[in-house]
């Protein structure tokens, strides 16, 4: 997965001179997850910029550059530290095109590793997607596979609007997948049915795609047919793919690692209730992280917080039998 991210950035840097990278440790260190490993040698200090530990500045510089025609890729080292960028991203970048009546736009990408299950504790495990997905004007992308990560990151760089690009830390090394050698992109705003099925639609994104896929494969042995919808883009959400799937199965389970209240799952559930009510054959169910303030550091407690294949399987089983 991390290689796919690295390749996408490298190819975009090579393709378009307006593209540059900035962030903490992205230069000399090559990024804490090595997403920009070797880039400073390849593209030079003017395009691979090490910044101070100041996320507000990183986002501000990226915003200013973007408004002036550049295509910055800002790395926020951990999503847990993205909060100081709120004013730049939500307050300004999201509104640039709208507020200027289309005269200017802010084509920046804010990449950030997010998510738990990595023994990261309170400050290296957070899920931040719901805050950004709530803000119209921002695009929020959360790929699950190397193929999608590379294709979507390229689309994000080329997009004329600000994109928050969320990379689940646990997928960096755990998830491996085929990526073609030739040039391709994956469009922003399109979900993908990762597994076709007929009994229950499971709608998710990010790391949970892999747990849900494993659950789907296990349940297939018990003749429970799961359709797995990977949202890929959280904002703007691909409502049509979700609705089509629910029309087919009549049952929907929304899964995310993020905490439950106010999470993306509520939005997906509402869309289904509004647009697929006549097709529902069971309650729309959310399976999400518990409403506690942060991912615990204690391993047993972290395991309790995180969703996994067993918890997802049990939820699917319950809904299938409804």
């Amino acid at each position: 997965m991390i290689e796919a991210v690295r390749d996408a950035i490298r190819e975009e840097l090579a393709r378009d001179e307006r593209v540059f990278v900035l962030g903490e440790d992205v230069g000399r260190r090559g990024g804490v997850f090595l997403a920009t490993d070797g880039f400073i040698e390849e593209f030079g200090e003017n395009r691979i910029i090490d910044t101070p530990l100041a996320e507000a500045s990183i986002a501000g510089i990226a915003l200013g550059a973007a408004l002036n025609g550049m295509r910055p890729i800002a790395e926020i080292q951990f999503a847990d530290f993205i909060w100081p960028t709120f004013n730049q991203l939500l307050g300004e970048a999201a509104k640039a095109r709208y507020g200027s009546n289309g005269k200017v736009s802010a084509p920046l990408v804010a990449r950030t590793p997010y998510g738990g299950g990595v023994r990261g504790g309170l400050y290296h495990s957070q899920n931040v997607e719901a805050f950004f997905a709530h803000s119209p004007g921002l695009k929020v992308v959360a790929p699950a596979t190397p193929y999608d990560a590379k294709g979507l990151l390229k689309s994000a760089v080329r997009d004329d609007d600000p994109v928050v690009f969320l990379e689940h830390k646990r997928t960096y090394r755990l998830v491996r997948g085929q990526v073609p050698d030739e040039e391709y992109t994956v469009p922003i705003g399109e979900a993908e049915v990762k597994i076709e099925g007929s009994h229950v639609s499971v709608i998710t994104y990010g790391l949970m795609v892999h747990h849900c896929a494993e659950a789907a494969r296990n349940l297939a042995q018990d003749d429970i047919s799961v359709e797995l919808v990977d949202l890929r883009t959280l904002a703007p959400m691909d409502r049509a793919t979700v609705i089509d799937s629910v029309k087919k199965t009549g049952k929907a389970l929304v899964v995310h690692e993020d905490t439950r209240t106010g999470g993306l799952g509520g939005e997906v559930a509402a869309v289904i209730a509004e647009e697929a009510f006549d097709h529902l054959d069971g309650p729309v169910v959310r399976l999400a992280g518990p409403d506690v303030p942060a991912m615990p550091f204690s391993p047993p407690l972290e395991a309790e917080f995180m969703l996994n294949t067993e918890k997802i399987s049990a939820a699917i089983r319950r809904l299938a039998s409804y």
Partner: peptide, 13 residues
């Protein structure tokens, strides 16, 4: 007592 006779929208449709 009621679930048997309460039909989901999909079932009714």
């Amino acid at each position: 007592p009621n679930r048997r006779r309460r039909y989901s929208p999909a079932v009714r449709r």
